[in-house]
Amino acid sequence: MSAINCNIDIKHLSRVEGHGNLKIRIKDAIVKEARWEVVETARFFEKMLAGKKFNNLPFISSRICGICSISHNLTAIRAIENCFGFTPSVQTQRLRLLLKHMETLQSHILHIFFLAAPDYFGEDSFLPFSVSHPDVTNMALRLKMLANDLADEVGGRRLHPTTPVVGGFSKIPGKKNLGKFKYRLQSSLLDLIKSSTLLKKFEIPQFSRETEYVASIPRIPTLL
């Protein structure tokens, strides 16, 4: 058998949230090195934030990432509130948690249906996918719209939110509007069930490796 030597270099993996290069070195048919390189340019947010007024920090730190801007905003708020020893009201905590969940929904729908799903259906990207599977695309767009609209309502904006401030919210959503969203959330259950049945059908290649899972345990039981 002839020896297999090859190098695989993929610059800027596409259809992932974030930036990464993939480097694989194969010598004599054995993978010698497989590297995942994060090539995002350093932006030195830690230094940028130093010396700024505390109520300006969350707005700046949300710019770390457009996709998870709500998390960056809320964690900065929490850090500042912890510094002051301030506990937000139950209403604020619940609204923040709702906002956070909407970000999770936004991001998951984006990742599953717009970035990953086309691969499982043998399509190149979600644009041809939207032509071949309009029902799935419409369902994904409906769910994404719900998450985005509710994030708009609670956070003021779907990315880089404007209403969460240190101490609470600069504007709270109207009860009437939230009532409408309650109805929309309940009726999205059908779409979510459809999505999960669809996801079950995806054939994911067998891959497991020795992994050490690490997680931090929150000191305060009520998060956010």
Binding site: E17, G66, I67
Partner: peptide
């Protein structure tokens, strides 16, 4: 994308009713 948060690219996909 050069150095940024990808938020503006994400906006391209928003406003779902007319995105396609």
């Amino acid at each position: 994308k050069l150095t940024s948060c990808e938020g503006c690219q994400l906006q391209v996909f928003n406003r779902e009713s007319g995105v396609l």
